[in-house]
Design a protein around this nucleic acid. Structure first.
Lengths: 312, 312
DNA sequence: GTGAAAGCGCTAACAC
DNA sequence: GTGTTAGCGCTTTCAC
């Protein structure tokens, strides 16, 4: 049946017929026990209701399913405890490879990662000092580019709403890129011009409210994720502040929603689907025994829509 | 280790210490081979990038993970061939239970479902004539209620953009509820007032464009999914037609996006998370050997926001 | 209480 | 080419 040996045609016929008649289906569990291979990839994400991660999954699935791997999905809910539990489970279930996205426990629990004996790819974290391959966008550079674009359009008073600090890529890095760009152009960052959101549109709505209570309002605002940018857009809409005439808004991610808002969101393209594909490909390479780069960076670029305007 | 037998405390100590020292981890594959249980649930959905399904997954995961089941995810991409492949895989992998969402192959390939020997729950399809438990909203009734609400507000010329016909719940059923409500109130349905979308915002944008080319424009429009309703909202915005002053828009699903649009979308609450929870609970019941109702209906209700206005 | 042995369904290695 | 067997790592059964 597995074509592992040459067989006489008539015998093959007979076997195939028997299979047909009895409705025989192989037991993958027993097979895995001896072959030491499950053809299942474990994927861990913090939050599936977030469009970013669901598209990441889509990207991963699209490449691994091509090679007859399937997906074991673990949702950690951002709980370190669950992350460790699932990591243990991944090992017990003898999964062939693991993709970890935006995990929390890195600091302090790093040893757990070393104990894993199967190929791993980490995404959403710069993992300096590890031998584990990572897939990331250059968040600092992307945020820098976005801010520099705003500056190039004549904006001087630019505010920033970052992601939460516990998520370094969306918090530290994107905020860092913004600061770097401002500094590089000799622009001041008034204290009230930076705020931290928690990924929800609501948190950004509130943050924008605080920013716009400042004496001097910004003419542009860089928001670390599209979903939060929608929150900002909504705040401005509700206040009767026009976008982009009164204030420009720059997002980050280029989620589906970015092209559904009015005005449509100018944003940084950071396609989680391509992200997932890259992570999947890195993992497959390892599975095939090929060597992989320690860090792969997926390219980003600016998507110019309607929410940003040049200052005259 | 499994506490299957009473043991002398000192021996237990010794074993536990050995486990600690050697870093022993049980092999779930070998265990499953003899126990005939994997504690894995197979979940099949057509499209993970769709927020509806990712929230469905979230709901499923939230109940099964509580009972130490995990999720094997299969994305069918709406391809019947893949659906059958994964169903076979589910069986080979000896998964303990299966949740099928919005599958396509039902008609004509029904026997495949009967061959499954593990508990199954189907969602997104009314499966009349099967013994398989289903979890659904009453789409006809919900669409009826939404339309009747519009009528109660004084609207007479009401258009409808349904889901694709290959998806009975969003296509046939929601359109059916609309027609039923119109008929019940003695209102005509001009030919140009009904259109079929394909779930994308873009398809609804185009459908709305066609509807608004009619001689007599509608005063309200019922759209079978929120994402498509956003497409309609955007068309109206781009045309300078005011919502809800010139035309009212009613959505369906109550996705996150419904509260992020301006005006905020009045819609039918059809929480995929609760949907997923219900499906997970039905499956767990079967797993425990309890009997389950053949059909469970999750409740729907109207969420009144800003996109619908009473006619004076 | 404890240790030994059978066997889950498969693959790989080996004799015929 | 073909049939037989050992053994993957566990649980269960049975004898001690």
């Amino acid at each position: 049946m597995n074509n592992s040996k040459p067989v006489r045609p008539e015998l093959r016929e007979k076997v195939l017929r028997a299979v047909e008649e009895t409705g025989f289906q192989p037991n993958a569990i027993a097979r895995s026990l001896v072959s030491k291979e499950t053809r299942i990839i474990g994927v861990m994400i913090p939050d599936i209701s977030n469009n970013f991660y669901s598209n990441l999954l889509y990207g991963i699935d699209s490449v691994i399913s091509e090679f007859d791997y399937s997906m074991f999905l673990a949702i950690s809910d951002e709980a370190v405890e669950k992350e460790r539990k699932y990591l243990r489970l991944f090992k017990e279930k003898q999964l062939d490879g693991i993709i970890l996205s935006s995990i929390h426990f890195l600091e302090g629990h790093s040893q757990t990662l070393h104990e894993i004996e199967v190929p791993v790819v980490v995404t959403g974290h710069d993992l300096h000092g590890y031998q584990i391959p990572t897939v990331n966008v250059n968040n600092v550079q992307a945020a820098y580019d976005a801010t520099a674009y705003l500056i190039g359009l004549g904006h001087r008073r630019i505010a920033c709403i970052s992601g939460p600090l516990w998520d370094p890529p969306c918090g530290l890095d994107r905020m860092g890129g913004y600061r770097k760009a401002m500094r590089a152009h000799g622009l001041p960052i008034p204290e009230g011009f930076v705020a931290e959101g928690d990924f929800t549109a609501k948190s950004a709505y509130e943050a924008a409210k605080r920013i716009f209570e400042e004496q001097e309002r910004p003419t542009a605002i860089f928001v670390a994720t599209d979903l939060m940018a929608v929150g900002v857009l909504n705040f401005l809409h509700d206040e009767g502040i026009r976008v982009p005439d009164d204030v420009s808004v720059m997002g980050f991610d280029n989620l589906e929603i970015a092209s559904l808002t009015r005005p449509m969101l100018t944003t940084v393209h950071n396609d989680p689907y391509m992200y997932g594909r890259a992570a999947g490909e890195q993992l497959l390479k390892q599975l095939r025994g090929e060597t992989v780069e320690r860090m792969s960076t997926v390219p980003h670029d600016l998507v110019i829509r309607q929410s940003v305007k040049a200052l005259v």
